[in-house]
Amino acid sequence: MEQIVYLDGAFVPVAEAKVSVFDRGFLFADGIYEVSAVLDGKLIDNDAHLARLKRSVGEIALPLPETLERIVGIQKELVARNNLRDGLVYIQVTRGASIPRDFLFPKAAKPTLVMITSEKDIVNSASARTGIAVKTVADIRWARRDIKSVALLAQVLAKQAAAEAGCQEAWMIEDGKVTEGGSSSAFILTRDDVLVTRENSSAILPGCTRKAVTKLAEERQLRVEERAFSVEEALAAKEAFVTSASLFVQAVVRIDGQTVADGKPGPITGRLREIYIDFARATAV
Rank of each mutant, 00 (worst) to 15 (best):
M172D: 01
E34W: 05
P13R: 09
R273H: 15
M1E: 10
V57P: 01
V178L: 03
I116V: 14
K107L: 13
A163K: 15
A282W: 04
I32P: 02
E239S: 03
G9W: 15
G31H: 10
A138K: 12
I147P: 09
Q160M: 08
T136P: 06
L43V: 05
S149P: 02
Q92R: 04
G266H: 06
A217I: 13
L64R: 09
F28P: 11
R191A: 15
K211N: 11
E225A: 09
R273Y: 15
V156P: 03
N83E: 14
E174Q: 15
F105I: 15
W142F: 09
E59F: 02
D30V: 06
Q92C: 04
S20R: 02
R141E: 00
E16T: 15
D30P: 06
D40E: 15
D47L: 15
L27M: 14
S56T: 11
E119S: 13
K54L: 13
P63Q: 10
A143L: 11
P267A: 13
P63C: 08
K148D: 10
L43P: 00
P63H: 10
N46M: 11
P65R: 03
Y276Q: 08
A15H: 11
L153V: 09
I60N: 07
A17L: 10
K54D: 12
A48S: 14
V72T: 09
R24Y: 01
A165T: 00
S118V: 00
F241V: 02
L195D: 02
T283G: 03
L43W: 06
Q160L: 12
Y90T: 12
A284P: 13
T67P: 10
E2M: 08
H49Y: 11
Q155T: 04
G25D: 05
P63K: 07
R141W: 04
A133L: 00
G182V: 05
K238W: 01
V156K: 04
S183W: 04
P100N: 06
Y6D: 00
F105V: 15
E69P: 00
V196W: 11
A61G: 00
A251G: 13
D23V: 08
D193T: 00
T243K: 07
Q160I: 05
M172I: 02
D192G: 02
N124Q: 05
K76V: 03
S56Y: 01
P106H: 09
A158L: 05
A48I: 06
R141S: 05
L68C: 00
Y6A: 03
R271C: 10
Q168T: 03
V134K: 07
D30E: 12
A126Q: 14
D146I: 01
M1H: 08
I122E: 02
E2S: 11
L53A: 07
M1I: 00
I147M: 03
C167L: 08
L222V: 13
V242G: 06
D8L: 09
A80L: 06
P63E: 10
A154S: 10
I99K: 11
L62M: 15
V79R: 01
L78F: 08
Q155N: 15
I4R: 04
K107Q: 13
K54H: 13
D47P: 04
F279H: 14
T209K: 10
E219C: 00
D45S: 13
L64Q: 12
G176R: 04
V194D: 08
A240S: 06
S118G: 14
L84H: 07
I4T: 07
A37T: 13
T283A: 09
T269V: 12
L39A: 12
R70G: 01
S20P: 03
V5Y: 06
L68S: 05
A236F: 07
P265Y: 07
E2A: 07
